[in-house]
Amino acid sequence: MSQLTEQIHSSDIGDILDHSLSGQRPSKEECLRLLESEDVQLMGLVAGYLTQKQFGKKASFVNNIILNYTNVCVTDCKFCAFYRSPGAKDSYTLSLEEIEARVKTSWDMFKIRQVLIQGGHNPNLSLEYYEEAFQMIRKKFPQVGVHGLSTSEIDMISRVEKSSTKEILSRLKESGLQSIPGAGAEILVDTVKDVISPKKISSDEWIRIMHEAHSLGIPGSATMMYGHVESNRDIAEHFSKIVSLQEKTKGFMAFIPWSFEPNNTLMQKESLVNFGAGGTQLLKMIAISRLMLDGLIPHIQSSWLTNGIGMAQLALQYGADDFGGTLIGEEVVSCTGARSTELTDKRIIDSIRQIGYSVEERDNFYNPVRMH
């Protein structure tokens, strides 16, 4: 610790890191200074120290599948390679029977504890489609948590049903929705959203719908997609909005920063972004996430999906405490062709053990299922 103290005192961000070690979270302006500093290793040492103080040398993961129930979407986000327009030849929507078959196979083979349900903004699907799917999963697979539907999907359902988003959330909760993922946030700054996803809900709407979910007792995760057209000030603004909401609701269980993958997207075709942000930026984002959210949002995920297993191992030493999920059947990131997104529990367990950490399998709510 004394060696760490010496390094901190000679750093341009030493005052911020000093405050972090005494339990004081950085302000928005201090967040900007962290983002503009190149002292990533020192940020990681402090973030890693804070994480180990809370969790020890242990990392968790969840055995899950991603269920991309439809690729039909009318939002046309420039960062997405997954969506298809209504009526396109290769568009699809899973039937209730197909959803049941996928969950059953995954439960039988892998004893999954979570199904992450996300798809496109499909105007042909009614609320009943989701209600029936959630009811079926909860009834037939009671040990599998239903973690589903981004705020923008909730908004789409409310427009189809001509009902309020709060009413939609309430009915989905009654049907078995247990928690909500953070997708749709991207960067919570509308000048950024106007470039990358102009048809999607605004930053204020994302926050409003997430606030409604929390108020109804539906916890969730918060995300940030970085590495495209955003500035450091935009990222600092994003963190500030997440902090502000969490201080009000305490509804976020985890924060997941993930880097944009440009392959096969409109943003690459238009030369807005030609390549991903890379490993150093991931480690910086993980470390800053822990510094900004320590004591407020307990869990930071390693973001292996767009950065690979090796970077996730480093992320666990830079402030992340959760590896994420097995993600069998993922189709969105795999559409970019960036890498295989299949990952079994054995590979996660091996990866965590390789860095000398113990491995905890968890459920949808971050409760321990068993130690490996």
Score class of each variant (00 low, 15 high):
273 V>D: 00
304 W>Q: 12
276 G>R: 14
268 Q>Y: 05
280 T>A: 14
281 Q>Y: 13
287 A>M: 05
298 P>G: 09
282 L>T: 02
269 K>R: 14
290 R>Y: 02
260 F>R: 00
319 G>Q: 04
275 F>D: 09
272 L>E: 01
316 L>P: 02
259 S>G: 15
313 Q>E: 05
272 L>A: 08
308 G>V: 12
323 F>D: 05
307 N>A: 10
310 G>T: 09
302 S>D: 06
298 P>R: 10
293 L>V: 07
285 M>Q: 11
266 L>W: 14
271 S>E: 14
278 G>V: 05
274 N>Y: 13
281 Q>W: 07
281 Q>D: 12
327 L>E: 04
259 S>K: 03
268 Q>P: 14
318 Y>T: 06
273 V>F: 00
286 I>F: 01
261 E>D: 10
323 F>L: 07
271 S>I: 10
301 Q>V: 02
292 M>L: 13
283 L>P: 03
295 G>A: 13
264 N>T: 10
293 L>E: 07
306 T>L: 05
286 I>S: 01
316 L>M: 09
313 Q>F: 09
304 W>R: 08
311 M>F: 15
295 G>D: 13
304 W>S: 11
280 T>D: 11
318 Y>K: 05
295 G>L: 13
296 L>K: 11
267 M>P: 08
300 I>P: 01
292 M>T: 09
270 E>C: 06
274 N>P: 06
287 A>P: 05
269 K>I: 10
283 L>Q: 03
317 Q>D: 14
305 L>I: 15
273 V>A: 00
317 Q>V: 09
277 A>V: 07
285 M>Y: 04
263 N>S: 11
272 L>M: 13
328 I>P: 11
290 R>L: 02
316 L>N: 08
326 T>S: 14
306 T>D: 08
290 R>A: 02
282 L>D: 02
284 K>P: 06
294 D>Q: 13
324 G>Q: 09
270 E>N: 09
321 D>Q: 08
261 E>V: 12
265 T>N: 06
324 G>E: 07
295 G>Q: 14
272 L>I: 03
316 L>R: 02
304 W>F: 10
310 G>K: 09
306 T>C: 08
263 N>Q: 14
318 Y>H: 13
266 L>F: 15
282 L>E: 06
291 L>V: 04
263 N>M: 09
266 L>R: 15
311 M>L: 15
311 M>W: 15
327 L>G: 10
293 L>S: 08
308 G>T: 10
294 D>H: 15
283 L>N: 02
294 D>R: 08
274 N>K: 15
309 I>E: 08
300 I>K: 00
294 D>W: 06
260 F>K: 00
274 N>V: 12
262 P>Y: 00
281 Q>H: 12
265 T>I: 01
284 K>I: 10
299 H>G: 04
308 G>P: 12
325 G>S: 11
291 L>F: 06
